[in-house]
Amino acid sequence: MAQAVGTAHLETSTGLDNRKLLMWLFLGSECLFFGSLIAAYLLYRDRSVAGPYPSDLFDIPFTSVSAFVLLMSSVSMVLALAAIQRGNVRGMQIWLFTTATLGLLFLSGQAFEFTEFNHEGLSLSTNLFGTTFFVLTGFHGAHVTIGVLILLSLFTVSLQGRIQQKDSLNVELAGLYWHFVDIVWIVIFTLVYLIQP
């Protein structure tokens, strides 16, 4: 199943599965992507020439809850992988679905936050805060959305009985991506919301 041609069932030179190595490299690349976005946010922090400013808008308790929701989704992701590695398809399905639901919950929180900010006068073009904030958190939200799609796809395919213990790598890869997106949120939450000059 690995695309490794002709060597599908042979060892790789490093012993690491091709697809897993690919995922790690992809996440490494993503670090630079989010790193650049976060850098732009930090560079422009406090440079807005007109309001509204972060302190006018941020609702820390609310965002803490949604950050917590996302954190918990990482736990359920771990449980999904653990389940399928033990051959427990049912368990995996339950936890995959839970993870996707928590992800969706987080996304609705973000949608609510965006609309709320918008009502209070912040748009992409209002000031530098609006520009950098929406682009940074928007790209993170897009990543979560893709993650949810992957989880739901896995879930659907597994309902057709096509994910068994031997296919646990699929879940593992989705998990790697999911945890990464989660960690990025922790960084964003800390740097953007919590630490305010």
Binding site: A40, Y44, S48, S125, N127, G130, T131, V135
Partner: peptide, 23 residues
């Protein structure tokens, strides 16, 4: 990321490189 910033500036009026708004 730089290209996205440029695209957002041009297509959606973001301010990454807009000196008027402090960019």
């Amino acid at each position: 990321v730089a290209l996205f910033e440029l695209i957002f500036d041009r297509l959606f009026n973001a301010n990454f490189f807009n000196p008027d708004k402090g960019g």
